[in-house]
């Protein structure tokens, strides 16, 4: 028997924050890893939206309620206040209209967890400054010509956009090397330098 794989730190934070029986929408839910955890550990009523058909198939095979959809276009289908919580995990940087997506999440859910790679991480900065190359790092593993990321941002950038979408910042979790640092209530300058990625907890 093998030990169960350790839970990603951002998923761990989300799992500890979801009350039992809450309704959760995971936008860009991939193969349903987080949804299955939320269902099994939090008895959450989970639903998902995923762009890739392979991801959708994998989710439905696990009995998860997931539809094929595009965050840029299809979030507007959901009724106002349909969910207690919405999750947008490592997806916003690949959307065409990040502000629209955050506004739609604000309309659909009362709380949100949004994670994304930090484009102000020191390795990213040094790659451009010293190597004169578009950075390829642990948080941004794809080359410039294959990446699906079109709207990269820093922690400070995201904080501004979240406020523009009428969200309040409840907590900032800096993520680096598979670990989450202690939460802060807003982005500190050093986090914007040292975090490979961040998980923002937003409240209406």
């Amino acid at each position: 028997m093998t030990a169960p794989a350790p839970i990603r730190p951002d998923y761990g934070i989300i799992l500890s924050a979801v009350p039992d029986g809450a309704s959760v929408l995971d936008v860009g839910c991939g193969d349903g890893e987080l949804l299955a955890l939320l269902r099994d550990r939090c008895a959450a009523r989970v639903r998902g939206m995923e762009l890739s058909q392979a991801g959708v198939n994998a989710c439905v095979q696990q009995g998860l309620s997931v539809v094929q959809g595009d965050a840029d276009l299809d979030l507007s289908l959901y009724p106002d206040g349909a969910f207690d919580m919405v999750v947008l995990s490592q997806t916003i940087q690949a959307t065409r209209r990040p502000l629209h997506v955050l506004q739609q999440l604000r309309r659909i859910g009362g709380r949100a967890f949004v994670s994304f790679p930090n484009f102000a991480h020191w390795q990213v900065r040094l790659s451009l400054l010293l190597l004169c190359r578009i950075p390829v790092t642990r948080g941004l593993p794809a080359a410039w010509h294959t990446t699906e990321n079109i709207h990269l941002c820093s922690l400070l950038d995201f904080e501004d956009l979240a406020r523009d979408a009428n969200w309040k910042i409840a907590a900032v979790h800096a993520l680096s090397g598979g670990r989450a640092a202690a939460a802060t209530d807003s982005t500190r300058g050093w986090q914007n330098l040292t975090a490979e990625a961040a998980l923002f907890e937003l409240v209406a």
Binding site: Q53, N57, V67, Q68
Partner: peptide
């Protein structure tokens, strides 16, 4: 089928949708 799924989402139905290749 997408039309059906979208209407179900709007109606708040817990829906799964699948397009088989």
């Amino acid at each position: 089928s997408r039309t059906i799924t979208r209407a179900m989402i709007a109606a708040g139905v817990e829906v799964s949708s699948l397009e088989i290749e």
